[in-house]
Design a protein around this nucleic acid. Structure first.
Lengths: 120, 120
DNA sequence: CAGAATCCTCCCGGATACTG
DNA sequence: CAGTATCCGGGAGGATTCTG
């Protein structure tokens, strides 16, 4: 799992914010997707998640640890290296994320259209 | 669809708030479930949704209207009668809600256990 | 009955700066 | 590199009161 994450894996113009679904907090779903291919380091995650600040990333990861969605492994090296990896529980979210994706392929356009054609 | 909604259909002790999923805003998912059996009136919805204030309920319903999830029908009677009903789009959410429920049957206990056994 | 009008509070998430 | 420490603003949502 050495290939770097695509910096553009989350397109800023993606209307996913219109989705009537949310996975955990604001960033949790994207982090799960980032970790889908294997363990990643803190800074690796910051690449596709451009807008996230270190505070919020570490915060979110800690919550995910607490809930048993990811594990944190710190290697005693210099410079320090820490890896985050999905647990079995965390991986189980991927199925649901896929379901949401399928739903959005089918219906998200309808939501956007409804908003468009809505008389204020 | 005349049977009244079960006032306890949402148990206050249900740990669903620990779920890493949310359907729309805080109340959207529950409203969808309330409307699953057919159209309902404003006050009918307030029964199972005890804690919701009229402002927030009407706000949420308006958003759901705007997004094409529900329709609002006002009958010109006295006293006034208004009915909310799921659209086809809204009904499509039920599938996903079911998926989330299945997931939570399987995995929610694991999240709760992880939280329990977490060293602060 | 079905809301609208106000006011208010909490807290999530961001900005910025610093450190072992 | 992998975070922590502060400070801060906005917006969701609740409390309360009033109305066609």
């Amino acid at each position: 799992m050495a290939e770097p994450l695509d910096p553009d894996m989350f397109h800023p113009m993606c209307p996913s914010s219109a989705l009537p679904f949310q996975i955990g907090d604001k960033w949790t779903g994207m982090i799960v997707l980032c970790l889908a291919g294997g363990p990643r380091r803190f800074t690796e995650l910051r690449v596709p998640l451009r807008a996230i600040t270190p505070k919020v990333l570490s915060q979110t990861l800690r919550t995910m640890c607490r809930d048993g969605l990811v594990t944190r492994t710190a290697y005693d090296e210099n410079p320090p290296r820490v890896e985050y990896e999905l647990t079995e529980l965390g991986r189980s979210l991927l199925v649901l994320i896929d379901a949401v994706r399928e739903w959005s392929d089918q219906y998200l356009p309808a939501i956007l259209a409804a908003r468009e054609s809505h008389q204020v």
